[in-house]
Design a protein around this nucleic acid. Structure first.
Lengths: 155, 155
DNA sequence: ATTAATAGTTGTAAAGTGCAAATAACAATA
DNA sequence: TATTGTTATTTGCACTTTACAACTATTAAT
């Protein structure tokens, strides 16, 4: 299990770097990695509230508030006061935001294809299946989800 | 491949959070995640130079310089002028640094065991093997390693 | 009506970041 | 040897990110 920990740490670190470099490469440095994660998360959920997204990203709400403002300023996201509760802002991607996100995705997919190209198709299948298993396992374990106010991971 | 990208992004994000929370939980908030990565990397290599570590972590050398100073101040790492080239500082973990790192490792291993506990032993084997494959593939692809001055990932 | 809870925003201060420029040591060469 | 170029690390500076505390606006509970 020790070796798994090491293996994971390396992998996560490297993929983080890869993701970061994709971000500033493709859209003329206008989007940081944190911001790209925000965009992804907004797309993943339908039109989530600020809290919701901040929570999923393990980010303080106040920090998120500023980031959101930044993204809105860049015209990548928009907010709408929720009719059923006027305290909450529902977030959504603008067309430009959608495009930027797709651009980042393309870059990443491209790099991933480079990475996967050294695998046999059997290995590739195994790896893909494993990723699914891993994410499920993380979800089941309850790690990395909010629990009674204390943020994110396993507190 | 799209789905792989999404799967990976989620996974990397969550594991990053997990790692971060392990860092500030176990050793009384004295070590940030970036710093824990520095410690890991110093242990992984024998007694690397500053450049070496900064490079592997995709961190600007100047930023790294400050972080290293901080860690030295906390008594977690030490530096030694390399006899063969007095420009370079060789980094090493102090006893305390080693202990702190081991503590973080234990926390992470613990969480990982929780996560893996929902897998069958066959699945677990598959996943472990896949992680190895992935890291190899990343290394082979040349992504995430320095290339002519431009840092880290695939530039 | 009043009090409590919740979603979001700012003030402020600390930490992290990278670029440019400086220092120090080494390397190459005239 | 003196000079010029290169490399490893450090500092000055400006900018961003971050979180805690305190605030506003809205809803819920009594």
């Amino acid at each position: 299990m020790e070796s798994v920990r090491e293996e994971l740490q390396l992998f996560v670190r490297r993929l983080g770097l890869l993701n970061a470099s994709c971000c500033d490469e493709c859209c003329g440095q206008q989007v940081s990695m944190a911001q790209s994660h925000i965009l992804s998360e907004i797309r993943r959920r339908g039109s989530p509230s600020m809290q919701r997204v901040a929570e999923e990203l393990g980010m303080d709400v106040t920090t998120f508030s500023r980031q959101a403002k930044g993204l809105e300023g860049k015209g990548l996201i928009m907010r709408q006061v929720a009719p059923e509760d006027r305290r909450v802002s529902r977030l959504g991607l603008t067309d430009e935001g959608t495009q930027v996100l797709e651009q980042i995705d393309r870059y990443m997919v491209d790099k991933l294809e480079q990475i996967f190209s050294s695998l046999t198709s059997f290995e590739r299948e195994t790896v893909v299946k494993s990723l699914g298993l891993l994410n499920e396992a993380v979800a089941k374990s309850g790690c990395c989800t909010q629990r009674d106010k204390t943020i994110a991971c396993c507190k």
